[in-house]
Amino acid sequence: MGPNASSQTLQPFPDRIFHHNADLNSMNHRFVGAKPSEIMQFTMANAQNPVVFTNFRPLAVAFLHLVTDAKPDIPVIWVDHGYNTPETYRHIERVVKTLNLNLRTYAPKMSAAHYNAVYGGIPQLDTSEHDFFSRTVKLEPFNRAMQDLQPDVWLNGIRHDQNAHRKNLDVFTQGNHGTIRVAPMFHLREIDVEEYVYENELPDNDVYFDPTKGEEHRECGLLLEK
């Protein structure tokens, strides 16, 4: 799957490398053309307290399979904002059982029913009301999870082909909460990930809705926070 790796053996860097002043340019240069599994091997050899964030969107199961294959007990952060489709909730149950996920669920301090009753449901995009909504149902629970778990590495499943913002990122980037974000599938295409799901006979979810994005190629806000 994905680009061919170089024949060079990928050894860990000396000392602790995942810190906020890490030389990410060198790491990204070193892993150009590397397979996602090699990026994962390197990350797990050097991370002290890695975590995963997922929203169980379509094809996210491939990333979860890749990560848990390298570290089965890694904490998997999921923010249950309360607006998922019934199919997504059933899909999550299947994936948790299939991969035996160490799932850490975080919920907003205000339930979806409470928010809808007080504020009248999901606000329109690109308004101050929607900014408040996103902070309430997704960003605050995510920040709480990061404060609780104190990771040095935040693994996520972003790819370069998902939107314009992500195209300008890389495998290793600066994350919030003093983390280094690692995206082992960053250089793959959607078809590569679809093939991974098919080849590994993984359950997928194709009825998905993220109320903080509204549109498929928008950012939900997590990658935009400093």
Rank of each mutant, 00 (worst) to 15 (best):
K138L: 07
D148A: 08
L169M: 14
H160M: 14
T136W: 06
T179P: 01
V118S: 11
G175S: 07
A164W: 08
F172G: 01
Q162N: 12
A117T: 07
E140C: 03
N163Q: 06
I180M: 13
G157D: 04
D161H: 09
G121M: 09
Q150T: 13
K167V: 12
G120T: 09
D161L: 09
V171K: 01
G157L: 08
D152T: 04
N176Y: 06
H165S: 14
L169S: 06
L139K: 00
N156H: 13
L139P: 00
R166S: 09
E129R: 14
D126I: 14
P151C: 09
R144F: 10
H130Y: 13
A145N: 06
H165F: 13
L149H: 03
G175H: 00
A145V: 08
D170L: 08
N168W: 09
S128H: 15
V137H: 04
L169Q: 08
E140M: 05
Q162V: 10
Q147A: 15
F142W: 01
Q124C: 07
L169W: 06
V153S: 02
D131C: 07
F133C: 01
D152H: 03
D170T: 04
P141H: 00
T127R: 15
M146A: 13
Y119T: 06
G157Q: 03
R181M: 10
